[in-house]
Structure formats: structure tokens, C-alpha cells
Amino acid sequence: MLKVQVTSPGEIAVVDAERPTPAPGEALVRVRYAGICGSDLQTFTGNQPFASYPRVPGHEWSGEITEVNGDSGDLRAGQLVTGNPYFNCGECYSCRRGLVNCCESNQTMGVHRDGSFQEYITMPVDRLYPADGLDPKHAAMVEPFSIGWHAMNRARVTERDRVLVLGAGAIGMLTMVSALARGAEVHIADIVPERLAIARELGASSAVDLTATTVAELMSEATGGDGFDVVGEATGLPVSFLNAIEAAAFGGRIALIGNGKREVSFNQSMLIRKELDVLGSRNSLDAFAPLIELLQRGEVDISPILTAVVPAFATVDAMRDLLEHAELNVKVLVEF
């Protein structure tokens, strides 16, 4: 079978490999589509601190079950599925409390263990979610959708809220869609016009270019100066964190989604003065099934976020293109 392997930082190739064999309790899955995520690019470039090599990237995927070793439950051969790529230990304090997304020994596909950039993978059956009736491309986007969905769960978004999302990458836009699905009024800000155009297509109340408008001006225009009930920070940049504090209403909530790589200095009294809830949001929890149902009912449309589909043999070129032209791509899928 074909697989994409990062042999060392900066070195990536499409190679032949043996098809894996499912262990008891596992299914063999023929991958249909795998999404390229920022963490995959970090693994490729050597900027992912938890990656070891050689490594097959990929944690966003859809596929068809080929066989199951043992009790298949409701699963069947030929069925379209996606899966939770975050493997928790089941023993740490977080896991014992049911917060498996916060597992202290989490292992993520494509980082700590081989991922979905290959024709066949094996997965524990209890980590698979049937996606009958979905476009396989959309099924491969359930995992990134779950990140934004979990963040808006953490921020307790309702139809009464005015929400600002900072960052219009794939996760930012799926965070926006998650808030829209709850009936909130949602605004989004970025510095890339092409991405903002997609956000408008998805239903943003406004999509603001922060190279031409300040956060203070955005807040004044969108809320009359009241501030946003919820701000989702989806870039990880220090300036974006400070913008989130400025944009939030007194008594508001900030959901931190983007992984920061640099320290940020701020006066903690800003949080106290506004009595802000600042919520970290890691991975997702209990999100796959409700999102699949949401997509099956046709209540949301995530197709505008998909900007390219490339064949497996072109994965290396696609990853290099994403590194050089990130502004032109939001979500790129690899077809296996």
C-alpha cells in the first residue's frame, strides 16, 4: 500500500508499505480522504515538539471499513466512518474524571503514533463513528469541526450571544460555524481577504480585515461598544490574545483554541477588571456523534472551507505549497 512518511524534519516521501493487520477489537479501514492540518506541517518541518521520526502524518480522515477483528457491534464492512485520533491512557486523573481530551499521556495520530496519510489504517472499533450518508470529504472534516465545536461548548455559547472569532483559518471558520449553529450572531476577523470572503459565504455577520480596521473599531461597529459576549481566539498569536481581551465584554468569555508558540505579556488586572472567563480548549470531547448528525441533517454547510483535493501521490507537493501559500488554502484534503 501507499503511505506518506516524514523520515526526519524536512524530509518527506510517498513510499510503499505492507498493509496493516487489525488486532482483536480493531477494524481495518481503507482511507478515503485525509486532511492536512497545521500540526502535520509542524511534523514535516520539525516544529512539532512531540513528534518522533519516522512518522506518518494525519489525524483528520474518513474511510471505509474493510474488516473487523472481533465483535463489530453496529459497524459493517463497506461502511463510511471517521474516528477520534486522540488516544487517551484511561488511567490519569483527567481520564478518571471523564476528561479524556485532557489526558496527561495523550497520543495523537500523526504526532505520537502513525496517522492517516496512508491507504489503510487500523483503529479500535470504539473510536470509530459511522458517517452513513455523508460526503466522505465532509466526514474527513468532522475532526477539525470538533475542535471549534468543543471550544464553543466550553464558552457556553447560546442564541443570545454575540461572538467574535479571531483567525479565519480552517479551525477559526469551523468555530464560527459552530457558534452559528447555536443561533449566535458571529463576526470573524483575519488579515487574509480570501479567507474572509469564504467566511462571509458561510454566514458571518461581518468578516473584518484587521489590516484596515482596529479591534476597537470592530467592537464599536458590531456591538455599539458593549463588547462581545464570547471571543474565540484561533491563531495562537500574542497580539490576538490581547485583542481578545480588548474585544470581550465585561463579564464575557474567551475561548483559547490556537496553540501559542511565543510568550505574551499582559497585566492580569485587565482580566479582573472585566471579570473575564478565560477558557483553554484542548482537542474535543463528545463531539463526533452530534456533529455527524448535524451534517447528516443538512443543518450546516462546511463545503466552502474545502479549498482543494489532491491525489495521494501529490501529498508532498501539497504540503510544500501549504507552507509557501497558506493564505490561498483553508482546508486541503488528500484522496487515497
Rank of each mutant, 00 (worst) to 15 (best):
residue 50 F to V: 09
residue 191 I to G: 06
residue 214 T to H: 11
residue 317 D to T: 13
residue 22 P to M: 03
residue 315 T to I: 09
residue 7 T to N: 12
residue 168 A to I: 07
residue 325 H to G: 02
residue 126 D to F: 07
residue 157 V to T: 04
residue 194 E to G: 12
residue 336 F to P: 15
residue 121 I to C: 00
residue 88 N to Y: 14
residue 131 A to Q: 00
residue 245 I to D: 08
residue 120 Y to T: 03
residue 302 I to T: 11
residue 122 T to D: 00
residue 111 V to W: 00
residue 291 L to V: 12
residue 39 S to L: 09
residue 63 G to W: 01
residue 182 R to Q: 12
residue 313 F to C: 15
residue 201 E to A: 05
residue 248 A to Y: 08
residue 3 K to L: 14
residue 252 G to V: 04
residue 186 V to Y: 00
residue 318 A to P: 10
residue 113 R to W: 03
residue 174 L to F: 07
residue 174 L to K: 03
residue 193 P to V: 07
residue 94 S to R: 13
residue 153 N to Q: 15
residue 159 E to L: 09
residue 27 A to K: 08
residue 167 G to F: 01
residue 303 S to G: 12
residue 289 A to I: 09
residue 239 V to F: 15
residue 91 E to Y: 13
residue 190 D to W: 02
residue 323 L to K: 13
residue 25 G to V: 12
residue 42 Q to E: 13
residue 81 V to D: 01
residue 67 E to F: 01
residue 198 I to E: 02
residue 269 S to E: 14
residue 299 E to R: 15
residue 68 V to N: 02
residue 5 Q to I: 15
residue 35 G to D: 12
residue 12 I to C: 10
residue 152 M to S: 09
residue 98 G to K: 06
residue 55 R to P: 03
residue 17 A to F: 06
residue 207 A to K: 06
residue 115 G to I: 00
residue 175 T to F: 00
residue 146 S to W: 03
residue 112 H to V: 09
residue 99 L to T: 13
residue 114 D to W: 01
residue 154 R to K: 14
residue 138 H to V: 15
residue 45 T to A: 10
residue 334 V to K: 03
residue 322 L to H: 06
residue 307 T to H: 15
residue 329 N to K: 13
residue 71 D to N: 11
residue 112 H to C: 07
residue 188 I to R: 02
residue 41 L to K: 05
residue 91 E to T: 14
residue 167 G to R: 06
residue 324 E to C: 05
